[in-house]
């Protein structure tokens, strides 16, 4: 099972995403921003970092890279029910997905201006996605969060639609770290193939290297889920 991980200039967490795919039992494939060929991978991870230095807006320039044009084409229209290419955007990758309009809304500067780095508790609310089917609905997990522009915003009707269609994938628990509307940490497209998440599951996949809760492996199921989803497809 081959999962591509895109490297943009300024990506930081691509190596950890590659490692997470490997620990989950998949075969990671490195993809390059300037290459439209995604090498026939079964799914793609857009990693965290500061693509193109966060110039203009976070993710705005990455969205127009050759590899993203191909990923946007293969992911399909965001409201279609049939399944396109599974894509997980983490942190900066989530920003790229909203800039690409594969997911609605936008991510803006944290409410209190400061960059935040903490172990963050989340509740997984949608498990019928390519990336969360290995979790139990309502499962609480702890994974690292680190962002400066992680406030998820959308207009009220979009937020109502996301809630109504069950497209809120994960919500912040205990603390809303960045002012995200309705405590939203992650959302999906209609079919559940494309997921954007602000915290970092790839940093919590190996015992002893993640947050103390649950051996620090609470993020692993994002990657094992993708393998399951691809297998059953």
């Amino acid at each position: 099972m081959r999962i591509g991980v895109v490297t943009f200039p300024g990506s930081l967490d691509d190596r950890d995403a590659v490692r997470a795919v490997r620990i989950a039992g998949g075969t990671p494939v490195s993809l390059w921003h300037d290459d439209a060929d995604i090498k026939g991978v079964d799914a793609v991870v857009l990693p965290g970092g500061f693509s193109y230095g966060d110039y203009l807006r976070c993710g705005a320039i990455a969205r127009f890279s050759p590899v993203m044009n191909e990923i946007i084409r293969l992911a399909g229209p965001p409201d279609q029910v049939s399944s396109g290419l599974p894509v997980l955007g983490i942190c900066n990758g989530f920003q790229v997905l909203t800039e690409s309009h594969l997911l609605p809304g936008a991510l803006v500067r944290n409410e209190k201006q400061q960059f935040i780095c903490r172990d963050q508790k989340l509740r997984i609310e949608r498990t019928s996605t390519a990336w969360t089917n290995g979790y139990a609905e309502g499962q609480e997990i702890v994974i690292p969060l680190k962002n400066g522009e992680g406030g998820f915003i959308a207009d009220e009707s979009t937020l109502d639609r996301l809630e109504g269609e069950g497209r809120v994938v994960a919500r912040y628990l205990d603390v809303n770290p960045n002012g995200s509307r309705r405590d939203i940490a992650g959302i999906s497209n209609a079919s559940g193939t494309v997921v954007g998440l602000m915290p970092h599951p790839e940093h919590a996949t190996e015992a002893g290297y993640g947050p103390e809760a649950n051996n620090g492996t609470d993020g692993l199921a994002f990657f094992t889920s993708a393998l399951q989803g691809v297998l059953s497809a």
Binding site: R57, T98, I153
Partner: peptide, 8 residues
């Protein structure tokens, strides 16, 4: 297209 994000 590029310089602004119409969502925000």
């Amino acid at each position: 297209t590029l310089l602004s994000n119409p969502v925000i």
